[in-house]
Design a protein around this nucleic acid. Sequence first.
DNA 1: CCTAAATCAGTAATGATTACTATTTTATTA
DNA 2: TAATAAAATAGTAATCATTACTGATTTAGG
Lengths: 126, 126
Amino acid sequence: MKHYSKQREAILEVLRSTDTHPTANWIYEKVRERIPNIRLGTVYRNLSGLTADGEILQIEVGDGFEHFDGDISPHLHLYCKECEKIFDQSLKSDYISKVANESGFKTDTTIYVAYGICKNCNKKIN
Amino acid sequence: MKHYSKQREAILEVLRSTDTHPTANWIYEKVRERIPNIRLGTVYRNLSGLTADGEILQIEVGDGFEHFDGDISPHLHLYCKECEKIFDQSLKSDYISKVANESGFKTDTTIYVAYGICKNCNKKIN
DNA sequence: CCTAAATCAGTAATGATTACTATTTTATTA
DNA sequence: TAATAAAATAGTAATCATTACTGATTTAGG
């Protein structure tokens, strides 16, 4: 990722314009509204580059899809196993980073995921 | 996962006998030494069941493979982008779980992943 | 023992992601 | 602003980790 491209720019804008954690395909469909003949491969290539550059986060919750996040601040991802949605929760400190660096590991990205049942689903079930 | 099976038992034992974070295929090769005609599909099915039952953890680090962990205590996974290995580090408290539950989310599993460069690779590079 | 449900071996299919190539776009330098 | 090399893209094809299917086997409980 050494050069600017309008495709990369559009992908980044789409990702930053949502507070969900979309898949590559979702991003592809959105970007296609602006750049109709963009290819899914281009979206994947840029998402990989943006992740490597630390401009976005890649989140995996075990549902078979890679999810992407335009918010790179350290925060908690709550994955509800009932509705299969990802919720965000802010964190006061980057706990992981501190612990990791104490042991000589140079951290540049931290991912926090909790699995369980969200507030809403809890009401419905019980 | 309501019934016992020797396949499930063997898979769990293999996973608990290592402190690495193997892939389904690695586990398959190991279990095959004991049960020669077990199938990869059986390994996958059992790993999914064991994960759902909370007996093992499923860790994803963005390398295209699902990794499994027989240690279900909350701990930190350090993924070195240089040597592509996963290191463990114990945690004094399950920070995520506390924060999540405060907001009404019922957590049953927490995953901590830090990306960066490990101690050894740091020496080699610099 | 018997039965029903769960799991398995064996095999085939799926589909998210990656790879490839010729063309176009970008950054740089003169 | 033209020339050049490197990087990115469109278009297409391939990969391969994972899941799905089916008939046979194993398990749990009475």
